[in-house]
Amino acid sequence: MSDDAFATATAAIIAAGRRLDHFGWVPATAGNISVRLPDGTLAITRSGGHKGFLQPEGVIRVDLAGRPLRPGDRPSAETGLHCGIYRRFPDAGAVLHGHSVPVTVLSRAGTEAIRLEGYELLKAFPGLPTHAAAVTLPIFDNAQDIPHLQSVVEDRWAAMAEIPPGYLIRGHGIYVWGADMPAALMRLEALEFMLACEMETRRR
């Protein structure tokens, strides 16, 4: 893999971190961001640090098992969830994980999923050309055992007729992915808008 490819991925991750920070979706050390590199390895944010103030040294490389490729680098504990998405979806080129207020609040409601229906922004997702559609976002119980959590996610994917545009971890955050960073960002922004609307509707 060329240094240019890693530099390009790092720049995309830094820009995404600043955008997520602008919306308040990655407070403190929350969230993580990754990009699949041409050689199949990943560029991903280092453990800790504020994603709105990322510098190039805040992005490292790991293999598809989440192992750092340079001694001393420490990836996020949730790197395994990024790796699981890339393994399951060969077309995924970027993964975003944020901790917004709507995601955190709605995921704590005790349900197994959130259904989003009738929103104009559903058209942001491939295969949904009209607002007269619906998507279901599964919610998984939070766990510190990331391999186990990833296995639970994979079991749910296997049982679903259609793969959702993302998923929530209860009281924690959201994971989305896309073919590249712009696609992942569009998906996250669309979901965050609809989830904010859901929260406001339920509050009223």
Rank of each mutant, 00 (worst) to 15 (best):
G49M: 01
A43L: 10
D141H: 02
K51M: 03
I114S: 02
L149T: 09
V101L: 12
G98R: 09
A113I: 07
P71T: 14
R46V: 14
L81G: 00
A134T: 04
E78K: 11
G98F: 11
T41H: 08
T41W: 00
H82R: 02
V95S: 04
G118Q: 07
E112H: 08
F140C: 12
T104R: 08
V101W: 01
V103Q: 05
V135L: 10
I33Q: 04
H82W: 05
A65D: 15
T104Y: 00
T29H: 07
A92S: 06
S100K: 00
L42F: 04
R115W: 06
A133K: 08
P75W: 10
P129D: 13
R88Y: 11
G110K: 09
Q144V: 13
L37R: 02
G66H: 00
Q144F: 12
A28P: 11
K123I: 12
G49Q: 03
R61T: 10
A113H: 09
I44G: 08
V105L: 02
E117S: 13
I114H: 01
I85D: 03
S34W: 03
G72H: 01
S76Q: 05
T79N: 03
D145P: 05
R61P: 05
R67V: 15
T104K: 07
H99S: 14
G110H: 08
P27E: 05
T104G: 12
I60L: 12
E57V: 02
A134V: 07
S34R: 07
T130K: 00
Q144E: 13
V101M: 08
R36N: 00
G110N: 07
V35S: 10
H131V: 11
V105C: 01
H22I: 09
S107M: 06
A109H: 15
G58M: 06
Y86Q: 10
A132T: 14
D73S: 09
V105W: 01
K51I: 07
P90H: 08
G58F: 03
I146V: 15
I146F: 14
L137M: 00
I139G: 05
Y119W: 01
W25Y: 14
V103C: 07
S34C: 07
G84K: 05
A143T: 12
T29N: 11
T41D: 06
A124W: 06
P38G: 04
L122M: 04
V101N: 07
H50T: 15
G24T: 09
A109F: 15
I114Q: 03
R88I: 09
P126Y: 12
I44Y: 09
P90D: 10
L106E: 05
G84F: 01
V105M: 00
I33E: 06
A28T: 14
